[in-house]
Design a protein around this nucleic acid. Structure first.
Lengths: 271, 271
DNA sequence: GAATGCCGTTGCACATAGTGCAACACGGGC
DNA sequence: GCCCGTGTTGCACTATGTGCAACGGCATTC
């Protein structure tokens, strides 16, 4: 299945930073000859997974990609609602928010939203970062059983930019995240950047991380705590909505912001 | 590139109705042996384009599909805004709305939203319908140069359920749609169902159709005209926003609802 | 305007890569 | 227990995709 593998390697070249790619760029990045790349991308275009700009001859994601992406969300609307929550969070905090999910040992960024604050950590959708170096990634990992966490981190290729954790430190941090229900990244993703992250899952298996990043020298302690509180409120809302058992447990460490009184307004359509 | 072609044929089996597929179902539908299908889907899973349910062994769109779908929207947010407009339309009319685009000679449904009205034409996202049998498809086709319209319809495989148009009728209908700026489908998609559709394009090439369907016996003439008016208003807003020249021209037939007074509020972030 | 470099695409011969067949393992039903 | 349906794996064969080289198009350069 080499050609199929190459095809997906080619597809993975596309990201928020590189929405369009020339044949030769793809050939370089996945180490195949330009002739093969030309045929491969041509086939993907014929199938509708890619579109080709008729004038520049460059490729970009196509219609088939759009429908498949839409289908990922499957039955739930967790992704949609999570994104709304995130947008609101960014609006109120002024800092950058990320919606992402776990891909092996990496955090895969799905959606970002820039806040108004001038100093920003810009990460494009499609970017992959070692999960353990991010707040969202840690929050997602902490939901997995211990052996799987170790397995995922073991398999992840070593990366000089983001070091691998010590077994001891890993254990402690995971325990802390599980107890509190949120994860912190203290300049671990990027120097000078602090981040807070939570993870929410729908009925079966699909988990997303919501995270918020800001400069360490930016908002003061009080403000940071407010952001964390807002993030946790969002987590509670989503957790309640999608029956995420973990979020019931987290009520202990931080009290649940609004104890459910009768008569919540339903904004979603009935099935 | 046969295996890549098969891969995309397999991917095209997924739709709103069939979000999960078993190996054998895919094998049947794209006419390959189960062994090949097993290897093929396995490769797509390894690449992240598909996920496999560990217990049922069935496949569904994966993370890579999600990012690629997100990238389709590219620089513009036409899709997002069009969807918002559509949702509002459905809310106000109570009937079903569709967001779709042209795929060869077919209309490819991207997003649907059910209204409250009990009698509904249910079309799942991912569905393909001969464009000429739909209001949205006609609106999209009418934007193309004449030879290309004929070419696309010529290439489309014959389909007993939806007949091909006569050259004469095609010519007239296209002219009518271009003059008015919207298309109608009078029980052409489905018996007893009437639909109205418009098409909007962003700066370069990407065009979406917004359409609304309702039973012929449902809303009265007045109400239908209101729906059409609302749809056209949405078209004007989107057309203005994305510089769609066609929508300036359409002002003649139906007067533009709100002539642009100074000081439009900018909701999009600056680049 | 010719020359140069870069890019995308196409023919061709070879060897790899993917195919179908058959067999196996697994899980549920009459 | 026996089935049937399903998903996966070994194996031999051939069809398929590969690299190489050459070509045409398009800018940029001199």
């Amino acid at each position: 299945m080499k050609s199929v593998h190459n095809a997906m390697a080619a597809l993975r070249c596309f990201s928020g930073q590189t929405r369009e790619l020339a044949v030769s760029r793809v050939a370089d990045r996945i180490k195949i000859t330009p002739s093969s790349a030309s045929r491969l991308l041509g086939a993907l275009r014929d199938g509708g997974l890619l579109d080709q700009d008729p004038v520049t001859r460059r490729y970009r994601p196509g219609r088939l990609a759009l429908v498949l992406g839409g289908l990922y969300q499957a039955h739930t609307k967790l992704r949609d609602l999570a994104q709304s929550e995130l947008d609101a969070l960014v609006e109120r905090s002024g800092h950058t928010g990320y919606l992402s999910l776990l891909d092996g040992g990496d955090l895969l960024v799905i959606h970002t939203r820039q806040g108004g604050y001038p100093l920003r950590l810009v990460v494009e959708p499609g970017a992959r970062i070692p999960a353990w170096a991010t707040a969202g990634g840690k929050a997602l990992l902490a939901r997995l059983p211990d052996p799987e966490i170790r397995e995922r981190l073991r398999r992840a290729p070593r990366n000089s930019q983001w070091p691998t954790p010590s077994p001891r430190g890993l254990q402690d941090e995971i325990a802390r995240i599980r107890a509190r229900g949120h994860a912190l990244a203290e300049q671990e993703t990027f120097p000078g950047i602090r981040a807070v992250g939570i993870a929410v899952a729908d009925g079966e298996g699909r988990a997303f991380a919501l995270s918020l990043s800001f400069p360490v020298a930016g908002p003061d302690r009080k403000a940071q705590d407010r952001f964390l509180g807002m993030l946790r409120e969002a987590g509670h809302r989503l957790g309640d909505r999608f029956g995420d058992a973990a979020w019931q447990a987290y009520t202990a460490s931080h009290p649940k912001p609004r104890p459910p009184r009768g008569g919540r307004s339903e904004t979603m359509e009935a099935p």
